[in-house]
Design a protein around this nucleic acid. Structure first.
Lengths: 156, 156
DNA sequence: GTATAAAGTTCCTTTATAGAACTATTGGTC
DNA sequence: GACCAATAGTTCTATAAAGGAACTTTATAC
């Protein structure tokens, strides 16, 4: 399996990895959720090379996760803003942050906390079942082939 | 920021990216959740080179996500099994699959479906607030610096 | 002794990333 | 009008990582 054909795999993990499965894309998206929008701000915060940042932003725009919007004329300059498709990656980021908090933490404690606007509390994300509302863990789930599955036991 | 020092960043996204932020690790973990355990099975299903598979499995074992357990003597052979730390990545995988289903899908439909053992229904993962139980989206969350944050506005 | 199986390792080529310098466009300063 | 700053990139070269194929090791079956 080559990198460039990952988004054609019959697996939703592979298709998502095509978008976010590299060293930088998730970190760029983290900053997007923190309202960073401009090239030099991304570059300074992340320490990514300008070349790669340019490349990754183009990729994220191509996949419709970010959009490139002009924020001034003369000289015309652009900033990068999350689309709805990008905003929908929020559960992925929340799950990633929570796992990092639980399993990759160190002495000083969590780097960031999340407050729920509606209830006002600091919270952790809990993955629940859309049908019954109960929390879901790995052992609670049975994976079945869907309509887009490959013929045999290669499902993903 | 260099790749090898990513797990020392004061950011839970960066620390998690150090573990799963490459082309292959998430795909290997997907197969782990589908109960694939052996070297040649991973290799055949993923099409990853044996060299890289060996490397990634070592990395995942080193980070405590998988453990290497002997399944036979003479010749002594090992399989790779999710630890609790690895099982705790399930919400990340579920969020990744769901995003792929929603935004990277194609004609034939979803490659895989998930059934909740407890309620028996096919379901989608919903990220909810641990405090009030309500669903959480990007716009509902305020990020605040935690005890392990850097001095200024560099939080993540 | 020949073949098969599983789990890697080794070697070489191709591709991606790191790091630094350079370009383009405009506004402001001396 | 020459020079500097700000912003958003592009270009160049060296190094690191990934891809691809063959080889090694340990043991059983024929």
């Amino acid at each position: 399996m080559k990198w460039h054909s990952l988004d054609e795999e019959r697996c939703s993990v592979a298709r998502t990895v095509a978008v976010i499965g590299d060293r930088w894309s998730l970190l760029i998206l983290r900053d997007c959720f923190l309202r960073v929008r401009r090239f030099d701000d991304f570059q300074a915060r992340l320490g990514i090379t300008r070349h790669l940042l340019s490349d990754r932003l183009k990729k994220l725009v191509r996949y419709g996760v970010l959009r490139r919007a002009p924020y001034q004329e003369r000289p015309r300059r652009y900033e990068y803003i999350l689309t709805q498709k990008g905003l929908d990656l929020h559960p992925v980021l929340m799950a990633v942050v929570h796992w990092g908090d639980m399993h990759m933490g160190d002495e000083p404690g969590r780097p960031a906390l999340h407050r729920h606007r509606q209830c006002g509390q600091l919270f952790d994300p809990v993955t629940t079942c859309s049908e019954c509302g109960e929390p879901v863990t790995a052992r609670d789930v049975v994976v079945e082939p869907g309509p887009g599955a490959r013929p045999a036991a290669e499902a993903g």
